[in-house]
Design a protein around this nucleic acid. Sequence first.
DNA 1: TCGATGATTGAG
DNA 2: TCAATCATCGAA
Length: 210
Amino acid sequence: MLCPDRSFYARSTNIVANDLIGKRLVRIKRLSDNKLLRLSGTIVETEAYGFRSDPASHAFKGPTLRNQIMFGDVGKVYVYFIYGNHYCLNISAHSKKSEAGAVLVRALEPVEGVEIMKFFRRTSDELLLLSGPGRLSQAFSISKDISGMDVTDARSELHVEYVENGALHPTTISTSRIGISRSLNKRWRFVSGYSEGSELNMSKYVSRRH
DNA sequence: TCGATGATTGAG
DNA sequence: TCAATCATCGAA
């Protein structure tokens, strides 16, 4: 299936975060017996993180050992470890002018490999499989060893694909970002949504606190 | 070196 | 509501 190309990621980070909603995220994992495992889900929640104008971003203070992928070529995987327990998956994306940025992928709707993902997550609840950055990383077996991979290459072990039927939900809702203390005024979280009568609902696969 | 902190989660 | 748990970063 066709992947969004490099130019897709070479735009403002918030535009890329918005446009990733409804795309397919695909994980191809090489098992020890050399067989290939294919897992995938539809992106239903993202967040944009910028550079100078964004104190909540890892890139805010300039390049470091950890965040260097945010300053490099766009369309590359940036994984970091947080709270001593969880990996978070990002894709580098920014316009040439803004110099650095990344999109945090926060939630997916399960598509392929559901039973395998349930095993990795040690749960049978589909709503808890991919609904949060730490959860989707565990379900997709993502750690820092895939940092730097190219998501525009369909042969890559982690990549993004267009969905044949177009967007899952017609609407994208923007809100303030989750889990940060600074820049709460920016509405750089994007969620897949749909209309039901006069109500505007979020996808049930979005991350949320109980 | 060393201490503070965090783009989270599951349990209580 | 709270603690687990450790890589990263900037100060000392």
